[in-house]
């Protein structure tokens, strides 16, 4: 119903680092967890840091994780990608599981994808392997020798059989069958 997605920034799939052609490498460079030490909105973040952060860091040694306490401010996650993008996630009143889930998402992304609409779900550098069609493809070779103006080629090209021709064909078929029957007798 709503067409608001039309106003998003349209984009195609790009992979400037050609990730995955050789080896796969994680595109998230570093993550900064900013939180308050006593505000209620940071409670989930504090619990995450206490209980789950160590496991997360052990699983993903390729991401540098920083923590930055600051007083009376909403907790946020700031992610920095290899392509230079930074993404903020507002983590106000998030539970520790929610924060872990967001971190997992950021880890598997290659850039800040918010506000970007993909126009195609496939990127290829070789759109045609067997060659694109040209007006010369499957062109009748006899046209090479034709001399214009030619009365034969000037008229419309009729492929369909006319009613007369079909009748003639039926008549001839009938004749064949008659002959066959006579021979069979």
């Amino acid at each position: 119903m709503s067409n608001s997605h039309l106003f998003l920034k349209p984009a195609f799939i790009t992979t400037p680092g050609q990730n995955g052609v050789g080896r796969y490498f994680c595109q998230l460079q570093r993550v900064v967890l900013k939180f308050c030490k006593n505000n209620g909105s940071s409670r989930g973040m504090r619990e995450f840091i206490e209980n789950k952060l160590i496991d997360f860091v052990k699983e993903t040694p390729e991401v540098a994780v920083y923590m930055k306490p600051r007083r009376h401010r909403t907790p946020i996650i700031r992610a920095e990608y290899l392509n230079g993008d930074t993404q903020w996630v507002n983590a106000r009143n998030f539970t520790e599981d929610e924060i872990l889930k967001w971190l997992q998402l950021l880890k598997t992304q290659s850039s800040d994808k918010t506000g970007i609409r993909l126009r195609k779900l496939l990127h290829t550098d070789h759109p045609s392997v067997q060659g694109p069609w040209t007006p010369y493809t499957f062109r009748d070779p006899k046209l090479n020798l034709a001399e214009f103006p030619s009365p034969e080629l000037a008229g419309p090209h009729v492929v369909e059989t006319t009613a007369t021709e079909e009748l003639l064909e039926m008549y001839k078929n009938q004749q064949i069958e008659d002959v066959n029957e006579k021979r069979a007798e």
Binding site: R23, F25, C26, Q29, R30, V32, P61, E62, V63, A64, Y66, M67, K68
Partner: peptide, 18 residues
């Protein structure tokens, strides 16, 4: 920036490229 640790960054770089 305040949140910057060069040693950690180097370690992560090594891990990133495997």
């Amino acid at each position: 920036y305040l949140e910057w640790n060069y040693d950690v960054e180097l370690y992560c770089f090594g891990k990133r490229v495997g």
